[in-house]
Structure formats: structure tokens, C-alpha cells
Amino acid sequence: MKLGPDITRIAALLGEPARANMLSALMGGEAWTAGELAREAGVTPQTASSHLAQLEAGGLIRRRCEGRHNYFVLAGQDVADVMEQLALLAGRAGHMRTRPGPRDPAMRKARVCYNHLAGDAGVAMLDALIAQGRIVDREGSLVITDAGRAFARDFGVCLDASAKRPLCKACLDWSVRRSHLAGQFGIGLLDRIYALGWARRVEGTRIVAFSAPGQHAFEQIFGRIGEPVAMTSP
């Protein structure tokens, strides 16, 4: 008998298209009902209930009961990380949809990755924070500097060093194939972007849509979306 974790069960859960579509929908960090997930997956409510039960038993999603309604969310950040990395691997291996949807460019520009900003905008934001000396990249491990803590405070982001969630974390972006910012700092920055009215979440999608003034304000701090940031000298 082989020892160690059995990845085959998780792989089987992720390998079914309807279940994969449900998990992808939950990558936005919001709670969805069974009916909403059934429509997203293109299956009947009865089939959706079976899939959701399997995902819940497999530890990939959690159920939230609100009155008479059940809602479903990803079980945690680690599930979102796996989904993001699988998307990256699929793209690198050439396993792409043959008919990309009309929302694909918007998804690539800016989207939610569970609870932080991803896509061109997310990568631009991390590039800028590193170039500005607010974050240091130590071989893929991100560390916030004193300048970064001051920036977070001035920007209205609360960081808690005693919390279990890391302050900074690199998350490899499937569409750009470079890292964007996760962790408390990444979550807090996206929350502030919403609060400042720079961007909004497009209902029913993971797309983060910037207004023209919002994109201008974002780019004043983090550089142009989709363009590399020149690194400053140490």
C-alpha cells in the first residue's frame, strides 16, 4: 500500500467538467446557491446536487446555511490556489477552449482570484510595489518593507502581523504567467479599490471593471495596466 496523500480522489473531482465549472465560478470568492451553480455548469438541479455533495465530501467546498437557503463557497485559499495553478498548467500545455468567450479579454485585464486582484492589473500592481521598494521579492517569497507598511496605512489597508493569513503572498497568474499579489496586502488593496469607486465587480462574473477615472487613478500609483514597470535601483 502506498503511503502519503491520495491525490487521485481530488484529481477525479476536478476532472469532471461540470464540477470544474462550479469551482471556477466560486473562484470569485462569493457564495453561490445550488441553482446558480447548476446554471453555471449547464446541468439539472438534481445533477448539480450530486456534484456539490461530492465536492463537499471531498473537502473542496463548504456549505453555508442562511435561513432556508444553502450557499456554497470554496473550502479555502488553498483550493483557489490549486485551481489557479491548474489553469496555468492547462494554458502552458495548450489545453485551451477552441472558442474563447467575449468576456475573455476583460477577464485577462482584471479579475478576482478568490479575494485579490489578478490579471494584467494584478500583475502591474505587484510589479509597481516591488519597483517602489514597498515589497521585496526574495526568490518568490514576498516580504513587505517599512515603506510598504507606510503605504498600506496611508492607502487605508489594515495589516495584522498576528493573523494566520500571510501579509504578502505571490500567486502565479494563469493569464499573464507571472505573479500577482495575494495575502492580507493583496486582499486589502482590492477592497480599497472597490471602496474608492475605482472599479466594481461585474455581477455574475469574476471580472473587475475599472471606470475611466478609476483606471487613471490606479495607473497613477501602479503604472499602466499591461505594461511592465521599470525597476528602480536599490
Rank of each mutant, 00 (worst) to 15 (best):
E66I: 13
G226M: 09
H180I: 10
L196T: 12
Q54H: 13
L23S: 02
A150T: 13
D6E: 15
R39Q: 12
M22E: 12
E36G: 14
Q85A: 09
S179K: 00
A128E: 03
P228C: 10
L126I: 08
H216K: 11
E40I: 13
A217N: 08
P100K: 03
L60C: 07
F222Q: 03
S175Q: 12
A20M: 12
T44Q: 15
R178V: 02
R68W: 14
A48F: 02
A11P: 06
P166F: 06
A182Y: 05
K164I: 15
P234T: 07
A147N: 09
G148P: 06
D81L: 04
L181V: 05
G183L: 03
A75P: 10
A20I: 12
I135P: 04
W32H: 14
R201A: 04
G122R: 06
F151K: 00
A41F: 11
A41T: 14
C158H: 13
V123I: 03
P234V: 10
E30M: 04
A87E: 08
C65V: 15
C65R: 15
G188Q: 03
L37W: 04
G35F: 04
I7K: 08
A170N: 00
A182M: 07
E84G: 12
A212G: 03
D104P: 08
V136T: 14
G148D: 01
G140I: 01
Y114G: 00
L86Y: 04
T47S: 14
I221Q: 07
G122M: 05
A106Q: 11
R92V: 14
A87L: 10
A152Q: 04
S233W: 14
M125F: 05
P17A: 06
L26E: 03
T47R: 15
L55G: 08
F155D: 06
S50C: 10
T8G: 11
S141V: 11
V229E: 11
R9H: 15
Q54N: 15
G67R: 08
L167Q: 01
A110N: 04
A53E: 13
Q54Y: 11
A20R: 14
T232E: 14
M83T: 06
C65W: 15
A124L: 07
N115H: 04
P166E: 00
L126Q: 01
L172E: 07
K169P: 02
N70E: 14
A124D: 12
L52C: 05
M1R: 10
A31I: 07
T205N: 00
R64M: 11
H69S: 13
V112F: 04
A118E: 10
R192N: 05
G29M: 00
A34I: 14
H216W: 02
A170M: 01
W198N: 05
R138H: 13
Q220Y: 03
I144Q: 02
G226A: 05
A170L: 06
N70A: 11
R153G: 10
T232W: 12
D191R: 12
Q85T: 07
M22Q: 10
M27Y: 00
A12T: 10
A18T: 12
A11D: 15
P166R: 01
A147Q: 13
G35L: 05
K169R: 13
Q132D: 12
G140V: 06
R153E: 11
L60E: 01
L60Q: 07
L129F: 04
A195K: 13
P5K: 02
V143A: 07
P100I: 07
D81K: 03
A53W: 08
